[in-house]
Amino acid sequence: MRKRALSPIRIMLMVLMLPVTTIGIAVGVYLRTSEFEHDEALLHLIALAGCNAVENIVPGPFVAGGPGYHKRNDPDGDGVACDTRSVVFEPSAPPQHTEAPAARRVGTAKFVRP
């Protein structure tokens, strides 16, 4: 019995399953403590991966304060994340050419005191 319990294969499987177990516990705790219903909370977690991941499950724009809305998925800042309408960026001024920065030298870092 002891020989079987300490087998290298069993120990290796336990070590490899540790991240899966940890993620399962974390998702379970989030689903129980979230302000959303269980299905909405799961949608909110999936939306953390990005718009492409969540739109494979549920299409549509997600409004601020609702499940699926994350500020990083809202590039124009209008309170609607993962909206399907294309955003056209118009440059306000032509790009300015700037000079290349001076070559770096030893001792020019801001955090080094002379």
Rank of each mutant, 00 (worst) to 15 (best):
D76K: 03
T21D: 05
M17V: 00
N56E: 09
T22Q: 15
V20C: 09
G79Y: 05
H97I: 07
V15T: 10
T84E: 15
P8F: 13
S92N: 12
M1A: 08
S92G: 15
F36Q: 02
A81K: 02
N73R: 00
A103D: 14
A53E: 15
H97F: 09
L48T: 12
D76Q: 05
L6M: 11
V27K: 06
C82S: 02
K71G: 00
V27Y: 07
V88E: 13
P91N: 07
H44T: 01
A81N: 02
P91A: 07
D78L: 04
V63F: 13
A81Q: 00
I46V: 14
A26Y: 12
V58R: 01
D76E: 10
L31H: 02
G50L: 09
A64R: 09
L31A: 12
V112E: 15
R104E: 10
H97S: 11
A109N: 11
R10T: 05
D39A: 12
A81S: 11
F36V: 04
R113W: 10
H97Y: 08
R85N: 14
N73Q: 03
A26W: 13
V58P: 03
P59Q: 13
P8T: 04
F62E: 02
A53W: 12
V15I: 11
V29L: 13
P59A: 12
H44Q: 08
T33F: 15
